[in-house]
Nucleic acid binder design. Sequence first.
RNA 1: ACAU
DNA 2: GAATGT
Length: 205
Amino acid sequence: MSDGFYVVWNGRAPGLYASWAACRDQVEDFEGARYKKYDSPELAARGWERGPGDDPRTASTRPTTFPEGAIAVDAACAGNPGPTEYRGVDLATGTEVFHLGPFHGTNNVGEFLAIVHGLGVQYGKGRRAPVYSDSRVGIDWVRSLRTGLSLPRTTETATAWSLADRALRWLRAHPDHAHVIKWPTAQWGEIPADFGRKSSGVAVR
RNA sequence: ACAU
DNA sequence: GAATGT
Ligand SMILES: [Mn+2]
Ligand SMILES: [Mn+2]
């Protein structure tokens, strides 16, 4: 089973491995073993060349430049459903341009609202530059002008539902909004708007 | 399966 | 491992 892509820089047989089981055989009980898990063969191959200490979040095939004014968005929640927040950053500078929440929601409604908020910002500036999102679901909700939000409509979820309904109305009223582009995380690494709360993924013995 |  | 989604 390929549960990830592993680089072993220092082990019994240094190289790349396609499963934890294979990697473990190289590093278990090996003094001074250096190894790391990656989410894609591409990142692992580059990590092998860069050596131990490689940071896959920074190291990527990510373009150096993006369209002028492009914004990257992302959402995060503590529990899903749970307290949800979202934000957008300027891709050229890394500057945070908006940050809302927390409110009770889901990962997907957070991603959706982040995208639409970004589109609103772009619209106000002349709506030429794109919005990047790592969320297939959020992008799909925008394109279809329909959400699949599964939360029941309760007082607890009133804010999320209200924001989602309002976002949908905004989209329908502004069909000439900017483009939304999928951020290919496996190739480029984490989207710059990421909240940075994921586990390291590193197998530290 | 794919994306979170 | 568990949940949100197409
Ligand atoms: Mn995301
Ligand atoms: Mn994220």
